[in-house]
Design a protein around this nucleic acid. Structure first.
Length: 392
RNA sequence: GCACAGGUGGUAGAGCGGUCAAAUACAAGAGACUGUAAAUCUCUCGCCCAUGUGGCUACGCAGGUUCGAAUCCUGCCCUGUGCA
């Protein structure tokens, strides 16, 4: 893999780049739709590409569970298996250490929405899995069976899957972990980073190290310094932030991190963001970022649109949300987003999609997903243009 | 006309003497979702006050039995099925 920075903004830390992988190039900044189980839910791989997607991220933990990396390998690798001819990443399973552990136990996402009395202290274990220096013992959410993952196994699985970019195994720390827990967890993630590097054999794949450290400045800097000093080909920024103070916690964290990272290597922000986050993180210097928002929100009935729908939308950024489950849209002849030129907006009305959604037809979810992916890709493409023109 | 069966909230459908404003599901309304256990989850859903171990009106209609009836009895009105 090769990463070229084509332009650095004078107005911000934003950069325009080109990521060259064995399966083609990615113009950065770029949004990365999530294909956890080897599919962007409801879409074919051809549709995903047609909607402007350059890069996808699939998941080690889920594909290991089902159908198993050996099967994927037997079928010619993940690219061939899912007929995705473009660049591909796999996440390491590190997020599941959180989402199936403390996250599930506390009914909490990795971004804290409100003040919480829950605290995680050093030495505490989640009920549903066991984290030790050797690795993580998961309980499969599918059938309760035990799954053990550590850096070596995660890398082996990712090599069998065969994505262009793979990630070191880490622990995504909970937003309610205290400084001491986060520090101990970070030290373990750092050891795992070294082990991930050691385990990696396949030279065609690029391995990204992951910076953690939660919301703590000293830990973020320590992590960025350490991970940044290792021979990774790029970096993932993971973990938790507070969401109670707008975007400040996130941009602060990115600033602390990027000050310590080698700036000629690509940076991937893991699991962000909302539409209103995107410009900020790009301004902070993020090259790629993945997020389930366009796809999950689609399946839950939300279309992202340019102009706010009257009374139903927050319009804090360059777009709005349209909840197609509202009965008013049954009588609305307009497309989801009148300013969008995707194939769904060119051909279908809100009325029709609202009907499909209420009738629980899967095609509604397909249309919404396609539109949202297109919308996000287009949104980022315009930001690339703005960086090119020196506006951002 | 006769014989059965039945009439409960927007719908379907529980309840068959007290703990019933009435299970459950659907529909409807509101909210949540940031490296996907997520085509998911949460809340509201008779009316009123206003949010409480609150008030009022309800189970086809009219009477009755009973301390007490959606639940038992009588009549009436509807609906379905069978037989004439």
């Amino acid at each position: 893999m090769e990463f070229k920075i084509l332009k650095r903004s004078k107005k911000s830390k934003a950069r325009l780049g080109l990521l060259k992988t064995p399966h083609g190039e990615v113009e950065t900044p770029a949004m990365v739709p999530v294909a956890t189980q080897g599919t962007v839910k409801t879409l074919t791989s051809e549709e995903v590409a047609k909607a402007g997607t350059q890069l996808l991220i699939a998941n080690t933990f889920h594909l290991h569970l089902k159908p198993g990396e050996e099967l994927v390998k037997e079928m010619g690798g993940l690219h061939k298996f899912m007929n995705w001819k473009h660049p591909l990443m796999t996440d390491s399973g590190g997020f599941q250490v959180f989402s199936l552990g403390f996250g599930r136990e506390h009914g909490m996402g990795k971004i804290l929405k409100a003040k919480s009395d829950t605290k995680i202290v050093e030495g505490q274990q989640p009920k549903l899995l066991r984290i030790t220096d050797d690795g993580v013992q998961f309980t499969s959410p599918l059938d309760g069976r035990k799954i053990f993952l550590n850096p070596e196994r995660s890398i082996k699985i990712q090599e069998a899957l065969g994505a262009d970019i793979i990630f070191a195994f880490d622990e995504c720390t909970s937003p309610v972990a205290n400084h001491e827990y986060t520090k101990k967890s970070l030290e373990r993630t750092h050891r795992w980073a070294l082990e991930s590097l050691r385990a990696k054999k396949n030279k065609k794949q690029a391995l990204y190290g992951i910076v953690q450290g939660g919301k703590f400045k000293d830990l973020r800097q320590e992590s960025a310094k350490f991970i940044g000093s290792l021979p990774f080909e790029g970096f993932g920024i993971g973990g938790s932030f507070s969401g109670t103070d707008g975007n400040k916690a996130m941009t602060d964290m990115l600033r602390w991190t990027f000050e310590e990272l080698p700036e000629n290597k690509p940076r991937h922000l893991l699991g962000i963001g909302y539409l209103e986050d995107i410009k900020n993180v790009i301004r902070a210097g993020v090259d790629t970022f993945d997020c389930i928002v366009p796809t999950r929100y689609a399946r839950h009935g939300t279309a992202f649109i340019h102009s706010p729908a009257r009374g139903l939308v927050r319009d804090r950024f360059a777009g709005g949300k349209l909840d197609i489950s509202k009965s008013v849209y049954l009588k609305d002849k307009k497309p989801l987003d009148p300013k969008c030129d995707c194939e769904v907006c060119a051909n279908y009305s809100r009325s029709y999609i609202a009907h499909l959604f209420k009738a629980k037809e899967v095609t509604a979810l397909r249309h919404l997903t396609y539109h949202n992916i297109y919308f996000f890709n287009n949104f980022v493409a315009k930001i690339r243009e703005e960086i090119k023109k020196g506006k951002i």
